[in-house]
Amino acid sequence: MNRINQKLQENKKLLSIYFTAGFPKINDTVSIIESLEKSGVDFIEIGLPFSDPLADGPTIQASSTKALDNGMTTEVLFNQLKDIRKTVKIPLIIMGYFNPMMQFGIENFCKKCAEIGIDGLIIPDLPLDVYNNNYKTIFEKYGLINVFLITPQTSLERIQFIDKISDGFIYMVSSASVTGSQSAFGKTQDDYFKRIADLNLKSPQIVGFGISNAETFKQATKYAKGAIIGSAFVKYLDENGTASIQKFVNKIIN
């Protein structure tokens, strides 16, 4: 069984952390992953930086620009991760935009992921139908889970379809926004979280976008299986460096 699905069976609310590979420094990737695991994070999203990240707000965009300036590329990232499974056991997901993967070659990219021990991919601008028609068999061949997103605007019919074709979890975008733009959740979000929970989907939901602290993590996971923190962590790294990652995580889950 894929590490993601094993993790989803654990009887607890899951915390996932996103970071941009190559930020703040080009060679921070492995130490950030190891520190996050040691701090008790349940799974990790490794951001492959892109010049034009449409779904991201200013924090993640700025970290991506910096990472690219630092020299991060798909090739460099794969090299950094080649021995990661010697030390890290929790699920690892690569989150990135479609163009850099397309240039690397989708089959080649998936093959590399499988060799390294990556468990899944999140590609916000790869549409569902293109994935189904062109890439699904490749992902499956290499044992990779493709994670789909839903938003408060996603129709019921489409949610049910996404649930049907999802293996692993559904990435539930908390509100109509790009990453990093929320400071608190209100009744609108709570209603939306409950509405989705009441659908009793087969795929667990992990909430992302707008989760920044213990309070928003608790709100997001009231119904959902877990939540993902991205921009708030990237901002923390920017301000505090990589030395005190444990402190950031403790504030969320203790």
């Binding site: 601008d125 549409p127 789909f148 839903i150 938003t151």
Partner: peptide, 8 residues
Amino acid sequence: FIPEMLYP
């Protein structure tokens, strides 16, 4: 090739 947020 759009994120799900833009789909509707």
